[in-house]
Simulated assay, not measured.
Amino acid sequence: MSKRSSVAANGGGVSKDVTDPTEDKQKVLLSTETGHFSLIRAMHLADLITELNGLCGIMSVFSSMRYLLGDPTSLGNLYASLAFLPLGLFFDFFDGKVARWRKKSSMMGQELDSLADLISFGVSPAVVAFAIGMRTPLDHLCLAFFVLCGLTRLARFNVTATAVPKDSTGKALYFEGTPIPTSLGLDAMMAYWVSQGWIHAAIPGGVWFADTILEVHPVVVIFMIHGCLMTSKTLHVPKP
């Protein structure tokens, strides 16, 4: 007997609600099959596309690190770190389309989606913010708060996805809190700052309480607000 799987294609962005009679088969393959490539053989095509989303997030982090190790006036790696994030969103949407086309989804796919989204839309934007100059200890705590909000939002989605009211087709009517890919708004904001040269000492808002333990760039509050919106229980965002 087949069962309905609600799989998060973008951390709460798109649900892959498809009837998948092969889900149990994949679980059996993952738990019993042996061999060096048994994990790869058990993955669906949509799962491999989800991995590309995670790859984009990882490459964004590496590009930020390469920028930090190089000439701060050479912005190529910084622009690359920003560009990888919307590319990750493309794969995030595409894996859901492939899952529905092939009528294959899985619990493993759900977990991959959330983990990839945490890298691409949680960790990576925070690393870019660090790269452009938000580097005080208090900045670090605020950016960590943002990432942890994304982590919590994804965990809640995985637990409550089946409890959210559905329409006649089985599609969830709304998101609880803003989906984590909406952090691309932060990505766009930072890209604009980079294009205007508003980085490092020129970050908008400057720095408060300089040379004290409370030294902080006030713009990190934007990241914290976004984190609070992601974890909101009462904010219901209608699905398109």
Rank of each mutant, 00 (worst) to 15 (best):
M1Q: 06
S2I: 14
K3Y: 04
K3A: 02
R4Q: 14
R4L: 15
G11A: 13
G11L: 08
G12Q: 11
S15R: 07
D17K: 00
D17L: 02
D17S: 00
T19S: 12
D20Y: 09
D20G: 11
D20I: 12
T22R: 14
E23G: 09
E23Y: 07
K25P: 00
Q26I: 12
V28W: 01
L29G: 01
L30M: 08
S31K: 15
T34K: 01
F37K: 14
L39S: 00
L39P: 00
L39Y: 04
I40M: 14
H44I: 03
L45K: 09
L45Q: 06
A46R: 03
D47P: 08
D47N: 15
I49P: 05
L52E: 06
I58E: 02
I58T: 08
M59N: 11
M59C: 14
V61F: 00
S63C: 09
S64Q: 13
S64G: 15
Y67S: 04
L69S: 10
G70E: 04
D71K: 12
D71L: 12
P72Y: 08
T73H: 13
G76Q: 13
N77M: 13
N77E: 13
Y79E: 12
Y79P: 10
F84W: 15
F84A: 14
L85G: 00
L85Y: 01
L85I: 10
F91N: 12
D92I: 12
F93V: 14
K97H: 01
K97P: 01
R100G: 06
W101E: 10
K104F: 02
S105G: 12
S105F: 03
S106Q: 06
M107Y: 09
M108I: 14
M108Y: 10
L112S: 11
L112G: 09
A116H: 08
V123K: 08
S124A: 15
P125N: 11
A126F: 00
A126M: 03
V128Y: 05
V128F: 11
V128T: 15
A129T: 02
G133Q: 08
M134W: 02
R135N: 07
T136K: 12
D139T: 05
H140W: 02
C142H: 09
A144K: 07
A144W: 06
V147G: 08
L148A: 15
C149D: 03
G150M: 09
L151C: 08
R153T: 12
F157K: 08
F157P: 08
N158S: 14
N158Q: 14
V159C: 10
T162K: 06
S168V: 13
G170A: 04
K171R: 12
K171M: 13
L173G: 06
Y174T: 11
F175R: 05
G177N: 03
T178G: 03
P179I: 04
P179Y: 06
P179N: 04
P181H: 00
T182H: 06
L184S: 12
D187H: 06
M189Q: 01
M189K: 05
M189L: 02
V194N: 04
S195G: 11
Q196R: 15
I199R: 10
A201I: 06
A201R: 01
I203D: 04
G205W: 05
V207M: 03
D211Q: 15
V216N: 07
H217W: 10
H217I: 11
P218S: 13
V221I: 15
V221D: 10
I225Y: 01
H226R: 04
C228N: 00
C228L: 02
L229N: 07
L229I: 14
M230T: 10
M230P: 07
K233E: 10
H236E: 09
H236Y: 04
V237E: 03
